[in-house]
Design a binder for these strands. Structure first.
Lengths: 341, 341
DNA sequence: CTGAAAGCGCTTACAG
DNA sequence: CTGAAAGCGCTTACAG
């Protein structure tokens, strides 16, 4: 491994000058800089990250914290953020804290985040009060993406989940449906993502706006995935007097619902319509009507937000208004007018 | 930030002893160790990674290289590997080299991987001869997961893609189909993943075994996602004299195929059967028949494989037989006997 | 614009 | 089993 000293010797300058020249600091004459660059090139030199970090105090790394990796939304956000970050020369340390309490605890208490990274990005990861306090004590810059909870001092990027729920429900109402069920995800445990709750609230608001009251028996809660959607829908069907339409709080659940209906011999959308939220990668192939949210844009924006603080620019400490990205209806084949009885 | 010296002072020992005690080295008396542990606890001390790396030469980090993050298989592998790695105390640096040639080049030539990580995991990322030579010159331990190409000296974990293609096709043949189309992914560019080619070969072999010859007009190539499956299927339908069954080289394409068929008014499986490969997360909700492969297991195994070299144990340099995991048929609702004409 | 020197916070022979 | 000291390879005031 060639060291900075080798480059300094070859270029005939001090190591301090090599360091400055290679990092593009302005206090180096052009002729010196080019000499250094040439020498570094010849020796195929690049600085040791560990040494730079120890001496400079910056890690050039950001921690991306996710609750899972496989869900479509998480993957899309991380993928987009990764590109922005790497393009800007930063590394991405991935932490999946999942449902595993010890993983969350280890990350927050033992991982020593401030010594490992310069910034943190929280994707779809709600935090309890305890965790929020811990994070605040880290004094790292950060950003949250669709995380339900807001970290004081960090920008937040998200959609308006309640509005998305309203849009989905209004789509069904507009088609003429009046018996609309809601299947929604994530039971209310400590780390449940509030998005589903919000979306359900949107559903209720849309009904209320028409003077309707959501029927408790038309509301079923289950896991926020396809399997949960299937189970919730089976439960719904077992209760008798089925709805003419189902609003699901995410596309995975909606797909499970469509599957359960077809399995039960119920035609979609002729007998029952289904609408979800997200515009999952496979929603198109599924023919699923949904309310789309821009996932990649959220990842890009979030990463972009970090670039300033990473470069040392302290954030404008003004009040941080959340960035709320638009959602929009994408009507496909899983919704239609209710059957004429 | 408390430093090792603070702990040493409080415990009344040297920093060398603190370092040894905290890392669990055997050359420390139990009474000393517990004194050190207590002091570290009191001061909430944990070693600075940068300093440890610089002094010790180990990064405690592994690079996970992927071609994308959103595909189901990649996410499932990374998720499983992440858990094993973090549990063992290692960090995970994520590199998405995507289709971006400059990302691949930067990672291999500029990122200085040996100074950043102790090991590398290649997920579903085939490499050209040039890249292989570069990787070999890095002299890092590593492992490949379903990457098509094998890196000399690295274990490889994968499935038998050709056998999977055969199994899928034999399923259709067993149902009585004789006009079976193949839609398959990834055109043959330099970085195309060979899995699709192999799976298609399995399809051909299955036909050959029955004395049949694959018809060129029943074979269509397109992108390895739902959209590509849709387009390939539309092309197939436009050629007239359609098949009674379609084998798709991955589930995403299969879902796109089912969608294209339904959109064209063709019932699945009554008029045309569709089978994929992977057992994608949503294949169940989709009712898709498929040949399943164990993704999480591949991630776990791969991460486990790295643990030895990471701990300093040099690999048994014997010949590395690839670990080939089993695949199995999961018949759902998208396949059935051909229509009686 | 440039250099000498100190220092970042650990780990590792080496010696005892 | 333990410690003093050197060293890992950079960056950063400080001085000029």
């Amino acid at each position: 491994m060639t060291r900075i000293e080798d480059v300094a010797r070859l270029a005939g300058v001090s190591t301090a000058t090599v360091s400055r020249a290679l990092r593009g600091l302005p206090t180096v004459s052009e002729t010196t800089r080019s000499r250094v660059l040439l020498a570094a090139e010849q020796l195929d030199y690049s600085a040791s990250p560990s040494a730079s970090r120890l001496a400079g105090g910056k890690t050039g790394t950001v921690a991306v914290i996710v609750p899972r990796i496989t869900p479509w939304f998480v993957g899309a956000v991380v993928e987009a953020a990764e590109e922005v970050l790497h393009r800007a020369g930063y590394e991405l340390l991935l932490y999946n804290i999942g449902g595993r309490e010890h993983a969350r605890h280890r990350l927050l208490h033992r991982a020593n985040l401030p010594k490992r990274v310069d910034a943190v990005m929280l994707v779809a990861t709600p935090m309890g009060a305890d965790d929020l306090a811990t994070i605040a004590s880290l004094a790292l810059p950060g950003v949250t993406v669709s995380s339900g909870t807001v970290v004081p001092g960090w920008p937040s990027i998200r959609i308006d989940d309640r509005a998305a729920g309203r849009t989905a429900t209004e789509h069904l109402l507009g088609l003429g449906h009046r018996r609309i069920a809601c299947i929604w995800g994530d039971p209310a445990d400590e780390y449940a993502h509030p998005a589903h709750l919000e979306r359900r609230r949107g559903y209720q608001e849309a009904l209320n706006a028409l003077g309707m009251l959501p029927e408790p028996r038309l509301s079923v809660e289950n896991r926020a995935d396809a399997e949960g959607g299937r189970l919730a829908t089976e439960e719904l069907l077992s209760r008798g007097d089925p709805p003419t339409a189902i609003f699901a709080s995410c596309d995975e659940m909606a797909m499970g619902a469509v599957n359960a209906l077809r399995t039960a011999g119920v035609r979609v959308p002729q007998e029952v319509s289904v609408v979800g939220i997200d515009n999952h990668d496979l929603a198109g192939a599924f023919g699923l009507s949904t309310v789309a949210q821009p996932a990649a844009e959220q990842g890009q924006l979030a990463a972009g937000t970090l670039l300033g603080p990473l470069a040392g620019r302290s954030r404008t400490d003004g009040e941080l208004t959340p960035v709320i990205l638009p959602t929009w209806l994408v009507a496909r084949d899983s919704t239609g007018p209710p059957r004429e009885d």
